[in-house]
Design a binder for these strands. Sequence first.
DNA 1: TTTGAGAATTAGTATAGCCTAATTCCCTGT
DNA 2: ACAGGGAATTAGGCTATACTAATTCTCAAA
Lengths: 231, 231
Amino acid sequence: MNAALRSPQPPLTRSVEDYLKSVFHLTSQGGFATTSDIAEMLEVAPPSVSGMMKRLSETGLIEHVPYRGVQLTPQGRRAALQMIRRHRILESYLTSKLGFDWGDVHVEAERLEHAVSEKLIERMADALGEPRYDPHGAPIPTAAGEIEEAELVTLAETAVGSDVVLQEVGDENTERLRYLAEQGLTPGVQLTVIDRQPFHGPTIVRLGDGTTRVVGQELALLLFCRPTDGE
Amino acid sequence: MNAALRSPQPPLTRSVEDYLKSVFHLTSQGGFATTSDIAEMLEVAPPSVSGMMKRLSETGLIEHVPYRGVQLTPQGRRAALQMIRRHRILESYLTSKLGFDWGDVHVEAERLEHAVSEKLIERMADALGEPRYDPHGAPIPTAAGEIEEAELVTLAETAVGSDVVLQEVGDENTERLRYLAEQGLTPGVQLTVIDRQPFHGPTIVRLGDGTTRVVGQELALLLFCRPTDGE
DNA sequence: TTTGAGAATTAGTATAGCCTAATTCCCTGT
DNA sequence: ACAGGGAATTAGGCTATACTAATTCTCAAA
């Protein structure tokens, strides 16, 4: 009777995979993903989302509370994490084995993630030595579906005077990423927060080589850092 | 008015790409591709083919003579060759860089060819040193859309007593390919045709190492060879 | 407590592909 | 010269996914 119990599992369509990923990202801080947020993220009209949410909850991939929002079921979460693993392994592979720029890989991976087999992804992961982070510093879920949850703060929130490591860049815009790379602001770099201007002004940081950078709030909000003071 | 003249070019869908490839393969010896041959190759019902042929001829990718068959237009041929290049570069890459078996790559490439960018294919081709043949010995079209046309004969047609080189294996079945590899019958191998049994019987060949193989007609018809006698 | 703005859903269409059943066409064998 | 069989096409439907317009729901502010 219930569709979720009926079939072994018909392969997910490309659209479904995209919806699941969106819900995952929008609920990563807990809570529900709203129709309009999903619509905006996927660039579709809200009614398209409503329709899809209905179908996905019938197949047991999400929990839909009408007029409230949606969450992933364990099954939906598994599928989403699989897609995210694919995406991040692909980004890593394209970057380290085929000379792609970290600003370009997102678009490419976005298309490929729907077409690669499990086997191919594992071969790539193997060739890379089972990487744990993608080129943007985002954690790569394991094949078993586990993902690291780090507690990071944006550069805009760091305490003036503190030392941090830039852990992850939460952006996929080619131009911004290219700029950040030019500035030496890539995952793994050590930073000392020297100053911050008031009224959402820029944060000034010093790199390991002693040079400084002035990072406006828009960018600072995309730079996720781990404090390293008390170590 | 004419759809072919209207737009710059809306990207081809996955289905369209598959239809074009089929037509290319079915017309490689000249002539027309028939509705039923295309239907069989793509495993769809004949009316689906009729419908698609109508649309494709409206967009200028094929020439459709109703009740006769179809041929590619230059534009359609270009698109088909691009897909074949993608497919064969992917097969080559998966085989030499990611340890895939030559029997497995076809299925994987079949999905990926619709998702890769031009740029990725060229990076792969570059990493491989611009290969001219794929793992099955099939010629890889150039980025400019040129493909080598070799005159090959099947092992079943070779003259008894002649020397040949196995140039291409015209099959994609995993089991058959695995078997052929075990027998040492892979592209590039030198063969001497020792004998052939009558009534479509097997062909007996000798390999370079002096061992012999008995190749039944079904397989012999898939082994495309280049005679090397008069050299 | 009511109301209205904004979010979400339902209603009604559209398109790409696919299907089966019905019909039409072409050509070959008598 | 034409009849019949096989190939191709047309007719009519179905599903997935998207859209716009219309409707309904929720919640916070007055």
